[in-house]
């Protein structure tokens, strides 16, 4: 068991294995996202209340889900790095951070665009959007802290610790924002909470969520491979790749 972890933790092994999986994952992502988009945009029924504008959901929800899972994954990678000092874990965390921040941005932007037909304004202090905004700041903090350190190892360890602190705080933040929201705007209409979504609506959503995940995994593999090359550029096995 430990052998497997450490072997997978070796950048070289990861580089080779990820290189083999990479094309398949990209293909899977393209297939899922393609199918999902066509299904969601052309075949899913329009919402009886919101009309076609509800279709933003097919981008908003996957982005929001991914933004949250990225933070958790980043924390897991950070913990692995802090405890076992497996450098690969930190490379993955480094790569995930900007992607997670971007997904948070997409979720915020799509939510805000969605707000125009729904609420008649670009921004409403809706519980979900507010939590998202705070999460964006958390991402930015982690990225900024990593960049502020002169030594890569110091920055990596500091960012890992901050991510762990953040991941403990996220549920508390969510809970308190929900509490604050109900206190100030009782029973407002929230974007994605609906009693029951018919299968024709949520099936394409599920495909889109899976597609986003496939895209995320493929991109992370690709970007981690280039991060490996960047960091291990002076090691012999990397130099041999080029010859």
């Amino acid at each position: 068991m430990w052998d497997v972890v450490h072997r997978l933790g070796s950048p070289r092994t990861f580089y080779t294995i990820a290189g083999r999986w990479q094309p398949w994952l990209w293909a899977l992502a393209a297939l899922l996202l393609g199918t999902g988009s066509v299904w969601a945009l052309l075949f899913a029924p329009a919402d009886y209340q919101q009309g076609d504008s509800f279709r933003i959901l097919y981008v908003h929800v996957p982005a929001a889900i991914l933004a949250q899972s990225c933070f958790v994954l980043m924390a897991v990678a950070g913990a692995i790095f802090l405890v076992w000092r497996i450098k690969l874990a930190d490379m993955v965390a480094t790569v995930i951070a900007p992607f997670g921040a971007a997904m948070t941005g997409v979720a915020l932007f799509s939510g805000s665009v969605w707000g125009v037909p729904t609420w008649g304004t670009w921004w409403v202090w809706d519980a979900r959007l507010t939590s998202m905004l705070i999460q964006l700041f958390l991402y930015l903090g982690v990225i900024a802290l990593r960049g502020a350190f002169a030594s890569r190892d110091g920055g990596a360890r500091a960012a890992s610790l901050l991510t762990l602190v953040g991941v403990i705080n996220i549920p508390i933040i969510k809970y308190s924002v929900d509490w604050w929201n109900t206190l100030h705007q009782p029973a407002t209409f929230t974007l994605t909470q609906r009693p029951a979504m018919p299968a024709e609506m949520w099936l394409p959503l599920a495909v889109m969520v899976l597609g986003f995940y496939a895209y995320f995994v493929a991109l992370t593999l690709t970007r981690t491979r280039s991060e490996i090359l960047r960091r291990e550029g002076r090691k012999r096995w990397v130099l041999e790749l080029g010859s």
Partner: peptide, 20 residues
């Protein structure tokens, strides 16, 4: 400056319940 960026988001729950 970085300190504020790191800490302020984490203090939001305290702010919410404190002012609440």
């Amino acid at each position: 400056v970085l300190l504020s960026l790191l800490v302020l988001p984490l203090t939001i729950p305290v702010l919410i319940f404190g002012s609440g």
